[in-house]
């Protein structure tokens, strides 16, 4: 990978070692919870009419679960491509500061930019949290290798989870099939609450929950965008208002 003339057996062995350490770092409680979420995601995507190949393609090219769930939600609501793309983009702006936080930790003196662009694709909540917790213990010039092992194994493992779910989903008893479709909502209800950094995030969540069904009736076709915008801006105004109140 780097300087073939100096890459002796020891260096290649080191790279392999840290790649595997990255793979092992994916075996964790957050990763188990993520796999549960992918079970729910696969059931939901299948119900929305996506084929198995399309679901695996979506996991490979999108990866971040909130973006995929917004994508499916918008497709289910019958939104047109521009509205769907806009909703997914709005839900994913937060990926930028996550990448910004991770890149300085990951970059070594000899890291090429294209490696960072390629690896940034693996950034989503779970791999990002695991990486920020563990990457400091990795030798700097092998951190990209480590993150590649972590990100790639999470993506591939969850593709398998989604495929197995897709294949058995059709033969489940009705009550279990119903339970499968409730996995995604409860996963995001709790994980959104847990990941809210400021009180405003919780206000935004409650506003979004209330506005989603209302917007579904009032502005079909733009319901998610409308609920996201109105709920998000209200929560932000609440944030500004309550912060300035004591002064």
């Amino acid at each position: 990978m780097r300087h073939p003339d100096t890459a002796d057996a020891g260096e290649a062995g080191q790279a392999r070692h840290w790649f595997l350490r990255g793979v092992l770092a994916a075996v964790s409680i957050p990763a188990l919870i993520l796999a549960t979420a992918f079970v729910g995601f696969a059931g939901l995507a299948r119900e929305a009419g996506f084929s198995l190949a399309e679901i695996l393609f979506m996991i490979a090219v999108v990866w971040a679960l909130p973006a995929k769930v917004v994508l499916i939600g918008a497709v289910l609501a019958g939104n047109a491509l521009p509205a769907v793309a806009f909703a997914v983009a709005l839900s994913s702006i937060r990926l930028t500061p996550m990448v910004v936080a991770l890149v300085p930790e990951m970059r070594g003196p000899r890291t090429r930019p294209w490696v960072l662009y390629a690896l940034s694709h693996f950034v989503a909540v779970t791999s990002w949290v695991i990486a920020l917790e563990t990457i400091r213990g990795v030798p700097r010039d092998l951190r990209t290798t480590y993150y590649c092992g972590l990100g790639l194994s999470l993506v591939l493992f969850n593709m398998v989870v989604a495929a197995v779910t897709y294949l058995v989903a059709g033969s489940l008893p009705p009550a279990v099939a119903a339970g499968l479709l409730l996995l995604t909502p409860i996963y995001f209800l709790t994980s959104l609450w847990g990941s809210a950094r400021e009180q405003a995030g919780k206000v935004a969540m409650v506003a979004g929950l209330a506005l989603g069904p209302v917007a579904h009736m009032l502005v079909p076709g733009f319901d998610l965008l409308a609920a996201g915008f109105v709920g998000g801006v209200c929560a932000y105004l609440w944030h500004r208002f309550t912060r300035q109140a004591p002064a």
Binding site: L90, S91, R94, A196, A200, M205, A207, A227, G228, G231
Partner: peptide, 9 residues
């Protein structure tokens, strides 16, 4: 806030 409200919706 907007991303959270969107996913909540």
């Amino acid at each position: 806030c907007i991303a959270t409200a969107l996913v909540a919706a």
